[in-house]
């Protein structure tokens, strides 16, 4: 019974990890850059939801309608302001650039909002559903359902719209996509905006589950790296399965080994994957793309 409980909790949080990782892997797949700002965007979205709720009593789920466009705009801005220049240079340049932005954002958050932990206490926050011995946290369940819906929307977008298909095409073969008349700058901007908006949705959904503080992003960035590498860099399906798997592994190990040690387990898992199957579950060896 306890195992079922852990499995369900793990899958629920895993769904949110999947959503976070989906954005990361989308950006990687199209631009081949590892985006260290990704976790901080989660933090920004959580603060945004927190302040909307605290100052203006905007419910988290209504707040999404503001969080999504703001985060998308922020993503586009980061791309146009910085990444666009770094991407033409080496991998190291884009890594350093995104780490740089990450430091700026974290410190800005520290300056603006101090290092206090803040969480949204809405009416759902402490609710849980109960079936026999099973307890399911209401905000987590809502977060999972929200993540599922948004993931479905992203897949529909990528498969049934021209822009979405162009994004997939560019991530498979950028050169060929350009030959089709695809404007790569436009695709990069849109991908960065969508990737950031996705992590924004995750942030809003999580703001009643976790307390937000300026360096919260780092811990989620680490998780999403593990998820993305596990699933295969750039693979969207991989990100979803990887997210669910890491969610379960983390929850189970937190119960049996202790919450402070749970990172150890998935980091070990991460190492094993890197050694045994470096391309990940759904990964292929991706050619380097030069521009």
């Amino acid at each position: 019974m306890i195992f079922l409980q852990l499995l369900i909790s793990g899958i629920l949080i895993g769904g949110v990890y999947a959503l976070i990782s989906l954005g990361l892997t989308l950006i990687f797949g199209v631009m081949r850059i590892v985006n260290f700002v990704h976790g901080d965007m989660l933090m920004v979205a959580m603060y945004l939801s927190y302040w909307l709720f605290t100052l203006y009593s905007v419910e988290l789920y209504t707040g999404l309608f503001l969080v999504i466009p703001v985060l998308a705009a922020l993503g586009a801005l980061i791309y146009w302001g910085v990444i666009r220049f770094a991407i033409r240079r080496s991998h190291e340049a884009s890594i350093l650039a995104t780490i740089g932005i990450s430091i700026v954002i974290q410190n800005a958050a520290l300056l603006l909002w101090s290092s206090d932990y803040r969480s949204v206490h809405n009416e759902w926050a402490t609710h849980s559903l109960q079936w026999g011995d099973l307890r399911i946290s209401a905000p987590l369940l809502i977060a999972f359902i929200g993540a599922l819906l948004v993931t479905g929307l992203v897949f529909a977008f990528l498969h049934y719209t021209y822009l979405g298909k162009a994004i997939r095409a560019a991530s498979m073969d950028r050169f060929a996509a350009i030959l089709m008349g695809v404007n790569p700058q436009r695709i990069f901007t849109v991908s960065f905006a969508i990737g950031t908006a996705l992590v924004g949705v995750a942030g809003a959904l999580l703001s009643s589950v976790y307390a937000v503080h300026p360096t919260l992003g780092t811990q989620f960035l680490l998780i999403s790296f593990v998820v993305v590498v596990l699933g295969g860099l750039g693979s969207l399906r991989g990100a979803i399965l990887g997210g669910l798997l890491i969610g379960v592994v983390e929850t189970v190990s937190a119960y049996f080994i202790g919450a402070s040690m749970k990172q150890l387990v998935y980091l070990l898992l991460f190492l094993v994957i890197l050694i045994v199957k470096p391309a990940g579950l759904f990964g292929k060896r991706i050619p380097e793309v030069n521009q």
Binding site: R168, A169, M172, D173, F175, A176, A177, L179
Partner: peptide, 13 residues
């Protein structure tokens, strides 16, 4: 329009 060397299709599409 260019048909590039090595076809360069989008393999998973």
């Amino acid at each position: 329009s260019l048909v590039p060397e090595g076809r360069r299709l989008f393999p998973e599409m």
